[in-house]
Design a binder for these strands. Structure first.
Length: 443
DNA sequence: TTAGGGTTAG
């Protein structure tokens, strides 16, 4: 046996490292890595890439990036795999800017940019709604000899649809087929969603029929878009039919489907049917979500069933569902307009210790009151907010001015702009004369 | 021995 067979080779080390990283034994991998650096066989680019993958896998993208710098220090050139590993991690974290800068770095270094790199960039840009940049990169991708793929086309189609350009989406759809890429249920889902969002429900139904006739199995995402589109177009009876049909076809409605139908029923004034479906949702084993509650709370307030709306809110909190900004907006606006401004503020205070911070809450409440012409109550609320030191007076003042202007009350907005209301009160809340908002409507 | 993507909501 020669020496090479007795001692572990670089290949052995790297394989060992890969196994450890694959099982998320990162600390053991680090020990092996240190041993390599101190030993006879020095780490190579594969060693580094493997460890970088390990860091990315456990969410330590920063540490992974530091490893690249370490490579540069020892004159070990990072390769395409190094860049792609980190880019994949950035993509998973939703950091498209990081992906872009890695891409530019690769280009600067003269690397052959892999097709998957373009895929990640285009999908990332589409997710953030940057349709033009995404399309420009798509053209780059083709120019550089890469072929379009299902994910790229679907992401672009979805992004075009969401930006209100369904015609652009349909053109890409045709191009995709010409390119020899077969659309699947996800692609059709994106098409249907885009069409529904721009009110082209009839065409969406056409694609639905096409899928049914051509053995394209429609999934719950597709159904939810269609149910939502039909409901928003006031065709809730058809939405109900589609909803029932999906279960018959063995596709269980998920919370998106329930919420879309509940919303459609509300929009058609069938709140009681919506409440029945709300109960059925739970019985069918489908969890209520913050969206379910938001839809129902808004609608109950809208039809002045205020008590029930409040009960709905309490039920949500009892169930441990955390309200988001939109949900609290629906609740607080309803409360303000039904004259319970103080109660809405109290609820907001109670949410803070639960770790729920709703940044625009006061703006929404002041805005709703101004819009309803209830400026006096808006002023009282504004004073209350400043009294409790919840916001700096200057910000509340700006909010009031914007709200008044938006509500068409330009006279009061100008009066507030030129007055000293809210000013003269410093951030340290030392006692200083402060002119109350209330004085705006007192005389 | 090292990198893999896309669709749903007020």
């Amino acid at each position: 046996m020669n020496e090479q067979n007795i001692h572990p080779t670089l290949f052995t080390y790297n394989s060992l490292l890969n196994g450890l990283v694959g099982s998320s034994f990162i600390e053991s991998a680090e020990r092996v890595f240190v041993a390599m650096k101190e030993g006879r066989i020095k780490p190579d680019v594969v060693t580094y890439n493997t460890l970088i993958k390990g860091y990315c896998k456990i969410g330590k993208t920063r540490k992974a990036t530091e490893m690249v710098r370490e490579m540069e220090v020892i004159n070990l050139e990072p390769d395409v795999v190094t860049y792609m590993t980190i880019m994949q991690a950035c993509y998973s974290e939703g950091d498209v800017d990081c992906c872009l800068s890695l891409y530019h770095e690769m280009e600067d270094k003269g690397f052959q940019v892999p097709s998957h790199c373009y895929t990640l960039l285009i999908c990332g840009l589409c997710k953030t709604g940057k349709v033009l940049e995404a399309y420009a990169l798509f053209e780059n991708m083709l120019r550089n000899g890469c072929k379009g793929n299902k994910a790229v086309y679907t992401a672009l189609i979805d992004c075009y649809g969401k930006s209100g350009n369904s015609d652009g989406a349909l053109r890409l759809f045709e191009r995709m087929k010409m390119d020899g890429i077969e659309p699947d249920e996800v692609t059709y889902g994106a098409i249907v969603n885009g069409l529904c969002k721009s009110g082209r429900v009839e065409e969406a139904l056409g694609y639905f029929r096409f899928c049914n006739e051509n053995a394209v199995v429609v999934n719950a995402v597709f159904y939810s878009s269609l149910i939502d589109g039909l409901g928003k177009a006031g065709r809730v009876d058809e939405a109900e039919k589609v909803f029932d049909e999906m279960a018959e076809k063995g596709c269980l409605p998920d919370s998106y489907c329930y919420n879309a139908l509940i919303d459609g029923l509300c929009k058609c004034g069938r709140i009681d049917d919506a409440l029945v479906l709300f109960k059925r949702m739970e019985c069918d084993g489908c969890e209520h979500t913050v969206y379910t509650f938001t839809i129902l709370i808004s609608e109950l307030f809208r039809v002045h069933r205020n008590e029930e709306a409040v009960k709905m809110w309490d039920l949500m909190i009892d169930k441990g569902i955390t309200p988001n900004v939109a949900c609290f907006r629906a609740f607080s606006i309803g409360m303000c307009l039904s004259g319970k401004v103080a109660r809405a503020c109290k609820v907001l205070d109670e949410l803070a210790p639960m770790g729920v911070v709703l940044e625009t809450a006061y703006e929404d409440m002041i805005g709703a009151l101004c819009k309803a012409g209830r400026v006096k109550e808006a002023c009282k609320l504004a004073d209350g907010i400043v009294d409790r030191g919840r916001e700096i007076p200057g910000k509340i003042r700006t909010v009031m001015i914007h709200s008044l202007r938006k509500a068409g009350n330009a006279d009061l907005a100008i009066k507030l702009m030129h007055s000293k209301i809210g000013i003269g009160y410093d951030r340290m809340r030392s006692v200083k004369k402060r002119v109350k908002f209330q004085t705006l409507v007192d005389n």
